[in-house]
């Protein structure tokens, strides 16, 4: 059986010459929820952008058995739901409905199917009554939930989230953690929220300097305080 995500020896440099990824190798099993932690600038966001082909580096990436490339890009983008850190980047449409419908429309679904998917996705994140709202007027917590709905409406196999709890107040953070726990799908989540990591994720990957420096069970890694200290991380 293939992995849901299989990255091997991936390297990437930005046009300005800065090397962001330096031989990353990482795999995530189907149904598994994995956290990705590491200091700012470690390359976490860059890695996530590779998972559905927004950025293309050297090396190979397989997502649910498909190699990321020009031919597979449509299927890959349908399979991987990527949620960006700033919901104001993720929610770019004039209304919530348009935003949640954007993915399904561009995947080519019929009008009825699009409406159904939008309703279902908003239902999952408990934002049913927000269809006609304007994103700007929502709280950050609401925006985050709707950001997740914008990819759930595409029915992805894998959910990839970039710092989902950043900027949330305690109650919104709690709601979001509950939502992520209840979503039964493969998940790769980059975060600084170590409390959430130990609560929600059994697998952990630690990134530093453009490489995965350790991959394994969360409890084991969090117990190794020397290792955490070396990579600027703290035990929750």
């Amino acid at each position: 059986m293939h992995h849901a995500i299989d990255v091997s020896d991936l390297s990437f440099s930005y046009p300005d010459g800065r090397q962001a990824l330096d031989g990353v190798t990482l795999s995530v099993a189907p149904g598994q929820k994995t956290a990705l932690v590491g200091p700012n600038g470690a390359g976490k966001s860059t890695l996530l952008l590779h998972l559905n082909g927004v950025l293309r580096g050297e090396g190979s990436i397989h997502v649910s058995g498909l190699e990321v490339g020009d031919d597979s890009i449509g299927a890959i983008r349908a399979a991987v739901g990527l949620v960006f850190q700033d919901p104001d980047d993720q929610l770019f449409s004039p209304t919530v409905f348009d935003d949640v419908a954007f993915g399904p429309i561009h995947l080519g679904f019929s009008e009825d199917e699009v409406r159904k998917r939008v309703a279902d996705a908003l239902d999952v994140v408990e934002m049913q009554d927000y269809e006609n709202r304007v994103p700007f007027h929502l709280s950050i917590g609401e925006k985050k939930r709707i950001s997740i709905a914008t990819v759930l409406s595409m029915n992805p196999e894998i959910l990839v989230l970039d710092e989902p709890t950043a900027g949330l107040d305690p109650r919104a953070r709690r709601n979001l953690i509950t939502l992520l726990r209840d979503l039964d799908m493969t998940m790769l989540v980059s975060t600084h929220d170590m409390a959430m990591v130990s609560e929600l994720f059994r697998q952990l990957a630690v990134m530093d300097g453009g490489r995965i420096v350790r991959e394994g069970r969360t409890t084991e890694i969090l117990a190794d305080s020397d290792f955490l200290h070396r990579h600027g991380l703290e035990k929750p």
Binding site: L49, N52, G53, V54, G74, R77, A78, V80, L82, F84, D89, Q90, F92, D98, A101, F102, G103, I105, H106, L107, E111, V114, R115, T150, V151, M154
Partner: peptide, 15 residues
């Protein structure tokens, strides 16, 4: 990037 990630190919379609 967020648009590309959701299948955008150069045209914004609406219902």
């Amino acid at each position: 990037n967020a648009m590309l990630a959701r299948g955008y190919t150069g045209e914004v379609k609406t219902l």
